[in-house]
Amino acid sequence: MAQIETGGGDGKGKSHQKKMSIHVDFTPMVDMNMLLITFFMLCTTMIKSQTLNIALPSNEKVENVENMSQASADDAVTIILDAKRKKGSFDVDTVNGKVVNEVYYFEGKPGGDEGMFDAAGNILSANNNLQKAEFLANNADGTSQGIRKLIQQRNKEVLVEINKLKERFRKEEINQEQYDSLSKKVRRDEKLKKPVIIIKSTNQASYGSLVQILDEMQINSISKYQIDNMTRVDSVMLIDYQNNHRN
């Protein structure tokens, strides 16, 4: 391919031209191209970053507390993110310089109906309804575990409807657009019982765990969730839990 044959005609000619073949060596060219390809391959970003949308509530002081939309204790699930602490102290425990995230939750009001404090303001450890969960992926058989299991149980009614829609979408009864609008409707359906999830995080927890828990909201089609600040009661419960579950 890379050679040109210059034949000496049919041989009948007077001049006996020598048969010559010109080889063009492409090896340096290939070398150079490979170098350039390597350069472009290393400098290119093929995958674009993904984004996660967040809407925080306005932090203007609400004058009329009555007007605030309050989550009923039945629906409320509070999730608290924290970093793993060292045994016997509240210092953050790290593995290879990285924080290990922990996730806690309680349902309803802090401390249940009786509250975390008695009339004198003492902490009532017995009322602490905080529980520890874990970030876990699905089991091999597709069942959920950890914090996801809890969220799915609380959001059962919505998920049943969403799964029906998914099935219809798989059978191609509805297209993507219809699926999107219908699933949106299901998520907003007031008749279905769905939880209101309040996400709180201690200062020591990592940003990665926040994204992780926001992910869970998306995976489990939670329509009502918010990021909130830790209150005194939350901190008291967390410390109380950690004090009681220390080996």
Binding site: T51, A55, L56, S58, A83, V99, Q204, A205, S206, Y207
Partner: peptide
């Protein structure tokens, strides 16, 4: 691995100037 404290500070600063909506790069 940034601690929540720092991200919270940034979000809080945005909230104060009424930029309640934003996106997180993942």
């Amino acid at each position: 691995n940034t601690s929540y404290e720092i991200v919270h500070m940034v979000m809080d600063n945005l909230q104060t100037i009424h930029m309640n909506k934003f996106t997180l790069l993942t």
